[in-house]
Amino acid sequence: MSANAFVQHLRIAGQYARIGVIRKSQFRVEFWSQVVMDCCWYASHVAVFEVLYAHVDDIAGWNREQFRVLLGFLFVSDAFMMVWLGQMWRFWRDLKDGKLDSFRVRPGATLFLYGFQQFSVEGCVNMAVAMTYLAYGIGRACEHVTLGLVLVTLIAVAVSWWVRTILVTFYGLVDLWLLGSDAGQFVNEAIHAVADRPADVFGARVRTFLLYILPVGALTQVPAGMVLGRYTPLGAVVAVGWLGMLGVGMFAAWNRGFRRYESAMG
């Protein structure tokens, strides 16, 4: 992607955000109910793990403090989905209804133009909540908060967002292949089931697969590992570089998969 195209897409994102804000000034109950909904989701996760850690100190090498960091990244990446990628929940239906037609003829990445169109302001509130929880978790897990740590945290947050985008793309790819089915729901369930727990609970092979091939585990464990110093600097660079390439590959696969798009009867 050229620099020009990159700037173009940033500006489009800006317009999407503007549209999201304009829209939101129009209904209000919805706003808070979505914020509360996501907080319920956070709460149920926190509750489960507080219950489990009431009985043990360590799960697969993660203690309670470290686990909070992991959950923090789960929430942050989920909030990213809420803020930017909300439209992807409707992907399978929009595929069936042929609603991607107009994005296909626009001079921009179809996946981007379609996927990022629903900017959600309530998601921003959730992002703030999630970030706060993450900051709290990191504060408890790390003894000294240094500038370096803050920097690594920011990079790690970006990684969790990036991995979320890869997964959403993968999820769209499954929908394209199983066109017309609602298999996405199941894939989503599987992704979530794996992402909320450290990939370390799996055996070595599965773990590598989940971290670096179908990076469901990378959503939380890679960024948390970076912040908690579980990677050497070189290891972190390699992991991030690999995940970057994986994303590019996934987007290319999505574009190819789009051949299966049949539109709908007009």
């Binding site: 173009q8 999407y16 503007r18 549209i19 829209r23 129009q26 107009s102 921009g108 007009g266």
Partner: peptide
């Protein structure tokens, strides 16, 4: 099938198209 955004004024959709 409308290609503009349903719940905002047309002029705001045009601004988006301008960027695209």
């Amino acid at each position: 099938r409308s290609q503009l955004w349903w719940d905002i004024p047309a002029i705001d959709s045009f601004r988006l198209l301008r960027e695209i």
